[in-house]
Design a binder for these strands. Sequence first.
RNA 1: GACCCCGUCGUCUAGCCUGGCCCAGGACGCGACCCUUUCAAGGUCGAGAUCGCGGGUUCGAAUCCCGCCGGGGUCACCA
Length: 467
Amino acid sequence: MPTEVRVRFAPSPTGHLHVGSAHTALFNWLYARHHGGALILRIEDTDAERSTEENIGSILEALTWLGLDWDEGPPSPGYRQTERLDLYREHAARLLKAGHAYYCECPPEQLDAARRAAEERKETFRYSGRCRDRGLSTGALRLRIPDQGATVVNDLINGPVTFEHGQLDDWILVRTDGTPTYNFCVVVDDVTMRITHVIRGNDHLSNTPKQILCYEALDYPVPEFAHVSMILGPDRSRLSKRHGATSVQAYRDDGFLPDALVNYLARLGWSHGDQEIFSRGEMIELFDVKEVASAGAVFDRTKLEWLNQQYMKAMDGPALAAHVEPFVTRAGLRIPGDHAWLGRVVDTLKERAKTLMELVETGRFYFEAPASYEPKAAQKFLTAEGGQRLDALVERLTGRPDWTAAALEAVFRGRADALGVKLGDLAQLARLAVTGRTASPPLFDVLALLGRDESLARLRRARAATR
RNA sequence: GACCCCGUCGUCUAGCCUGGCCCAGGACGCGACCCUUUCAAGGUCGAGAUCGCGGGUUCGAAUCCCGCCGGGGUCACCA
């Protein structure tokens, strides 16, 4: 029986969920789901200084919003590193006893000095190994790295990567104060959680040989590794706040759909022929880490926006309306109809906006009468002649029982013929009156959705504004 | 600086393993046109890559080999 695939996503709660982290979380999730395996969520909170409870909550929330569910992890206990200290202690003791680790009492100041000196000489700093054979019983615990040989990381994405042991040094497993270091915790956790595939950011590739040596010292099987490329800013350096929004929630708040973000992230470093849009099911079925590209990818918000629009367009009104509602409220607007009404409104707006936020802004007139008219258009349309046309429209429209888009269009066409003008002339005038703008969804749909009373009121108000 | 990774249109990518179908395909963005009551959406067409550079192997290289250059990442008693 083949061993079950077990992957993990291990964020450190020092901030919100970064899109780069979401990217590797997604690849882990896809890999787990594709293989019918398990995704384990582990919180790496050994940095007490920067880890906060709020950040943990925020990360879980972001993952949930993205629809990346985990099979093991919080809120169950035992998935935070701070809860697993005994485990690290046990393993440290084992390494010490087996002679694979030793205590080091070199004062930090001395190490710093040596580091600076090495830097002066333009050399790589490596711990001298001064305490290797002193048989000390206190201090920081270091892993003994073989002097000779090399360790090869057989990366699923990057292929075999060789690191000479001469490049590595006896790294610290446990600090003088007894707390375990990150690299040590990762090894112990991945082993005890029976992780079969470590899929993580490319920035960890250099740490991998150190970790492999630790697995071997512990006499544990080494998992498979896959180092995913990082997400870059326009200047091709790692995407950071300096480049703009980086957190998943920032994109949520800007009005992106989780499916769109997930689809976008999936296409960063991964592809399947010429296909751009993938349902979750398709992604799960088609995804394979071995096909992930090793080059970094620049985050392109414009393409994300396009994808978001594709997703909004594909969604039916009522479903989209549920996503839109909070944005209406947040804009300080009231919804003058029921959910079905909002669904129809949203149907007229979804192909005119890239984000939910933009959609609300574009359709603002559905929720409140225009506070003003576009100056240039007002200049052109709200003239004496425009007033006469508005009068004609109001007269024809008042008291009309059939307030549907089709009926309204018939009235407008009839009026345009009678007045000897093009439909467009009349439509633009009415559009300005009703929306305050020269661009909007189809006028007759807008009128129908606004209702007779509101539409007529707006036409009259525009009439009053003519010169 | 050392080590490691990466290098195809502005961007995301296909092709590279198993050389010829590639004087390089798709998508975003950009331009034009069509459709049209406006704006979008949609459709069609187009501009855009000497495949980082230089050698070599070969009848033939984006694809194989070597060197170089450029970018990024890692070098903590941070994670």
